[in-house]
Amino acid sequence: MVPAQELTGRPARRSRRRAGRVSAGWITSFCLPAFALYGLFLVVPLVTAFYYGLFRWDGTQRGEFVGIGNYREILTRYPLSDEIPAALGHNVLFFVGTMAIQNTIGLGLAVLLHRNPWGKRLFQTLFSLPYLISPLIVGYIWSLLLSPTFGPINFALRAVGLDAWARPWLGEPDLALPVLIVVNAWQWIGGPMLIFGAALAGIPQELEEAAAMDGASPTRTFWSIRFPLLIPAVGVITVLTFIGCFNIFDLVYALGGSDGGPGGAMDVLGLLYYRTAFRGGSNAIGESSALAMLIFVLIFGVSLALERTLRRREVH
């Protein structure tokens, strides 16, 4: 009896280990470093921000517990009660505008490259080069290029006789946001192009050939065969663009300073949070933490919802 148990016990343990069981010590030593870093510097600060937001602050001195008091305050008291909706509106326009421009051009370029593979790598590299540049540097580059008197763009416009088009691009409240959108789309267009390109390459050739044999025109083939298969790619891009557009800070800072350009025409939630946290009044900690939580819920909530609908779509 006893030897038999010993005999069966050992190989059983070994095979369990082979199936992926490892001692707790190894698990801890492999997972703990990442867990600790990520937890301490990413998760804990966000939880702390939530906690901070529940109190009234006097400078760095924590005062009484006010619950949702800070939230009520920032949403109802001037100037934040005006600045928050304005900044949110700019973020939304920024997101919608960026999506419209980068997806149409990105898809167009991907289709062109899919049709003529000649020089594909070269073009992909050229198109996505701005992708890697810091948004701050992109902002500085464009602020130099667009500068009213000494900027090459206005110079070129004047040179071809379009003097009326040479405008102080970043100095006019009506123009600043559209310019910001175009600059942003210019930077990120490589993403959609590559993602659409990969999706197009993944569509089996037979499908298109079959459609062509049935007499479908290239346009028809595109809209009925390729386009539906590109929808998941659109989903991925939407989530990435949403996160990017609502986290925007550097680009606006470089193009319009920390006040968000002329008359705050480019003010966005990121800048507003920065100003509230580091230039706010005595209750800056309370107010900016409440604002941070609102932005957090917005970004995290919407991207989660987008992701969910995306998954469900893919299943169907």
Binding site: V44, Y273, L304
Partner: peptide, 26 residues
């Protein structure tokens, strides 16, 4: 394979959508 593995993976991956910069003040 260990207990809490799925949870730990989800914990890490949730960071993909977290706007970490909002924790700047803390």
């Amino acid at each position: 394979k260990f207990r809490g593995r799925a949870l730990l993976a989800a914990f890490f991956l949730s960071g993909l959508m977290i706007p970490a910069k909002l924790g700047l003040l803390p």
